[in-house]
């Protein structure tokens, strides 16, 4: 209960602000309509008319919720109007990119921790890679992967997702693999442990808390990457495409529904990663 109350309070404040903004932003359209019809509307008459416009500047929460519900439950899941269908396409690219990002991030981290040359040569590039705006890079990745003969829209989206998600994993794992202190390394030396034993028995398990912390950032980044990857390609599938089409064809409700669909998806993914983390922590005897 103690956690629910503050959450509900914040939610309540958001709703109040949102409804107020809805009235304020959508009022102009109501007044314009009235002027064109040669009538006048009072404030009390105007307010209801801001709540169910077809193309509102800002749709009120209940309208977004209705559209979201219609998109999720109101359509066959194979329909192109179904948010489940589009969400699934985005989810596929997200998870594939997330997986690629983990492999790349962990692989590079191991190489960097064990090789000074790799640290000197790769680390600066890894940092620079994250300073390039992904919206600039995404179209190039899509064009290049098309030229490279990669079929389908999923792979380039996954590459963009991986591009964003490998970095937090890389940084987290470097820190994690280096977390054992000198004493713990000395202890293994006294056992004559090999490099491989050093890695599997000490460095890797010691890095797990850092790994899971970075996964939470990485999964969100992968989703953003997948959605951005759906924007420039004239893509017809995915939540990103849904948002783009909504904005281009003046269907703000579609846009808002897709936006909230993406937010819900992100929340669910982070919850799943959090559950995995708790499971792993229990397996590794974590203190409460």
């Amino acid at each position: 209960m103690k956690t629910v109350t503050p959450v509900l309070t914040v939610l309540g404040i958001i709703f109040v602000v949102w409804y107020a903004a809805t009235i304020w932003l959508n009022a102009q359209w109501v007044y314009d309509q009235a002027e064109r019809a040669g009538t006048t509307v009072s404030f009390a008459e105007m307010v209801p008319q801001t709540m169910d416009q077809e193309r509102p500047l800002l749709p009120p929460p209940h309208q977004v919720a209705g559209e979201l519900w219609d998109g999720v439950a109101g359509q066959a899941v194979t329909s192109k109007r179904s948010l489940v269908y589009h969400g699934f396409k985005t989810l596929q690219a997200t998870l594939l990119g997330f997986g690629m990002g983990i492999v790349l991030g962990v692989g590079l981290a191991v190489a960097i921790v064990y090789s000074r040359t790799m640290e000197k040569s790769v680390m600066p590039w890894a940092i620079i890679s994250q300073t390039i705006p992904i919206v600039a890079l995404a179209p190039m990745i899509i064009v290049l992967s098309d030229k490279a003969g990669i079929d389908g829209k999923m792979i380039p989206k996954a590459i963009i997702a991986a591009y964003l998600s490998f970095f937090p994993v890389l940084v987290g794992m470097i820190k994690g693999l280096r977390s054992p202190d000198a004493m713990q390394l000395d202890l293994l030396s006294t056992y004559n442990a090999s490099g491989a034993q050093n890695f599997w028995k000490l460095r890797l398990p010691a890095s797990m808390p850092y790994f899971f912390a970075s996964l939470k950032v990485a999964i969100a980044a992968a989703l953003v990457g997948a959605i951005v990857g759906e924007l420039p390609s004239g893509a017809t599938e995915g939540l990103g495409a849904r948002m783009l089409v909504g904005s281009q064809f003046g269907r703000p409700l579609d846009m808002w529904a897709a936006l909230f669909g993406a937010a819900i998806l992100a929340g669910a993914l982070i919850l799943i990663v959090g559950a995995l983390e708790r499971f792993a922590k229990r397996q590794m005897g974590g203190a409460a």
Binding site: Q184, T190, N192, A206, M208, G285, G286
Partner: peptide, 16 residues
């Protein structure tokens, strides 16, 4: 394996 070494801190692995 001539010796066992005990450090100032126990240094037990928390995951074991």
């Amino acid at each position: 394996r001539a010796y066992g070494y005990v450090f100032q801190a126990a240094g037990l692995y928390p995951w074991r």
